[in-house]
Design a protein around this nucleic acid. Sequence first.
DNA 1: TATGAATGAGCGTTCATTCAT
DNA 2: CATGAATGAACGCTCATTCAT
Lengths: 209, 209, 209, 209
Amino acid sequence: MEKHPRLNPRKRPTQKRSQATVDDILEAAAYILERDGWKGFTTNAVADKAGVNISSLYQYFPNKESIVLELRRRHGERVQECFTAPKGRVPAGATLRDMLHMLVEAGVREHRVAPALHRIFSEEIPSSAFDAYPAWEAHMAREWAHRMRPLFRGVPHPEMAIFVAQTVGHAVVHEAANRRPELLKSPAFIDEVVTLLERYLRRDASGRH
Amino acid sequence: MEKHPRLNPRKRPTQKRSQATVDDILEAAAYILERDGWKGFTTNAVADKAGVNISSLYQYFPNKESIVLELRRRHGERVQECFTAPKGRVPAGATLRDMLHMLVEAGVREHRVAPALHRIFSEEIPSSAFDAYPAWEAHMAREWAHRMRPLFRGVPHPEMAIFVAQTVGHAVVHEAANRRPELLKSPAFIDEVVTLLERYLRRDASGRH
Amino acid sequence: MEKHPRLNPRKRPTQKRSQATVDDILEAAAYILERDGWKGFTTNAVADKAGVNISSLYQYFPNKESIVLELRRRHGERVQECFTAPKGRVPAGATLRDMLHMLVEAGVREHRVAPALHRIFSEEIPSSAFDAYPAWEAHMAREWAHRMRPLFRGVPHPEMAIFVAQTVGHAVVHEAANRRPELLKSPAFIDEVVTLLERYLRRDASGRH
Amino acid sequence: MEKHPRLNPRKRPTQKRSQATVDDILEAAAYILERDGWKGFTTNAVADKAGVNISSLYQYFPNKESIVLELRRRHGERVQECFTAPKGRVPAGATLRDMLHMLVEAGVREHRVAPALHRIFSEEIPSSAFDAYPAWEAHMAREWAHRMRPLFRGVPHPEMAIFVAQTVGHAVVHEAANRRPELLKSPAFIDEVVTLLERYLRRDASGRH
DNA sequence: TATGAATGAGCGTTCATTCAT
DNA sequence: CATGAATGAACGCTCATTCAT
């Protein structure tokens, strides 16, 4: 926060043309990251690919990192919709399994949005490249946890269980997306993940429900 | 094979002094990666920190990547011991829970070996920096899967379950190590993870065991 | 004349608003030069500080140098007044000392006009940035020299003496302004400088007068 | 001192070859500064002119400014000799005029050492480019002042007179060197300057001596 | 006329790697 | 063998200036 002069975009583009320029830059940035990795992600390469002058790039982004950050922010917004959309639709008498199903499906949808971007953010970019992480994920996670907790059964350490469940849910969908993309399309896979979590969070009964 | 000129150490150091030099370089490499991240990981920095001349470094490593690769290889060896050691001791009538317990504990031990290195390999180094991953993990995983599979109960898609269980087990320990290190010391945590996996892989009974 | 495309203001602003814009630009230019030095003196910074669009700046000034040149010209005008004003008032029977006094006081006043600007022009701006120096100083100097020369006594090389006296007078006031600003307020200082010059230009008598 | 990472040379060249490289760089730097001014003084231009790789330049100098600083330091050393050499030879019964003569001649010699460098340091390089000025000049000036002061006659404010005399002596030689180089060769000029100072510092007598 | 957007040329600096002693 | 010296190829970023509405 101190070392990096700025991470936010430098200039809010007001006209249509500059909006398009910024979009072009971000699109090119995603393309380059995907194709050449973090190593090939140079501002000149991005500008070239975007078809804009390098100076134009720097009129909207104060430095290299801020480009990725904006990319991540935009991606985050689209991702968030996957989770906020179904939340409103949670019916009154929803069971834990219902809610888990919703969440896992949301996670799968999330990874379908832009799988390449997802891989980039999670595996390609060294975490040290960014100090400031926005915490929108944490906020959302807390909300869901709050809703589901009363439905736990026989869980000795609910706090720990929430950490475990969240980590597990996120990781298994993420790994499937990256290593076994075909799984994401299979309803059986979603069912398996839901079962994993349900049986972990409801230890009173053995069968379903 | 074409793109990467060489990744193996250039010269197998046979003499003691050379051995020590290589060790110094690797130690320095780990230190630099930990302190300055991938971005600060320059061959000159490593050589300086190791107290060896940059040209000497290039006598033992053909390029920058090969240093990290060797670091990873050595780390892998130590990690593997965590898993191979207990395997020999699996008693004849071991239950699934016993085996899961062994594995999870091994995973925890693994992360205690060199947590900093672990974080570096999983988060700091862009995956694109290395194409060639040795498959020792996969081999070990298959072996354990083969042992535990007969003990599954009520699992409709065993192959998928193995993928899920492995992914989940690995991820939860890893995340705990990186974000909640205190959890690794708690037996309750290990128990929770074991329970998570056991209830997933044995769906006939509800309670413990 | 070939190398420097243009140095004069591009457009003589006739309307009031244009006049104000030009003034704003010059004021901002002085501010930036003072605060950030020649290195920070960029056309964009000046335009920003002046609150005018960069393109507007280029409507009134053909290039960066011309801004400084105009600043210098305006400063020169104000400075000149310090010297032209008293000239008219030189009484008929004025002694050399009287005239030297007038000049030194004028020099001191000159440095009080805008000391910051003075420092900028003499120390901050590389002399190579401007080849074309207007010669108003030389003209004025010649005039004064012509008046005082008949009052010299015992000066073997009057031409050389004029060069020495002018250089010395200018330098000592200038240095005082930049390094010992408090001196400029002291009448004793002015007296000392006058004495220095008088005793140099009138070598017949030892005491004052 | 805080803003500039370093101003001192980066690496003390130990071998002959690198010594020569450093000398080449400094020589080229002087040449470029002289020919193209501060504006044309780019590290690439210096390296090119010196016939060394730009990276070699940065192996010995941490940044652009440090090159000029080292140039100035070396120049300062040679200049200092002009003043320290005669000091030892001041005879016991030396008059003020003798000492002034020595000093002015030293100043003239100083400007003959490398007049181009002198002009560069005093006029071409913006003062803001360097924060830290070594104070060797001040030290030497104090020493001489201490020697000459007892010989003052009729000087009402000796401290002020020292400031005036030093400023004046320095400036007139400097200006002569830059604007009327032919003067430096004329013994009459030196005599004039000495007379200027002597009559200022000894106000008891009118004639010479 | 004034403004937002754009740009070419280039600058300071780094770094993986090799040469020469 | 080990070391100091050297280097080519970029890279991130800036700035004076112009274009297009």
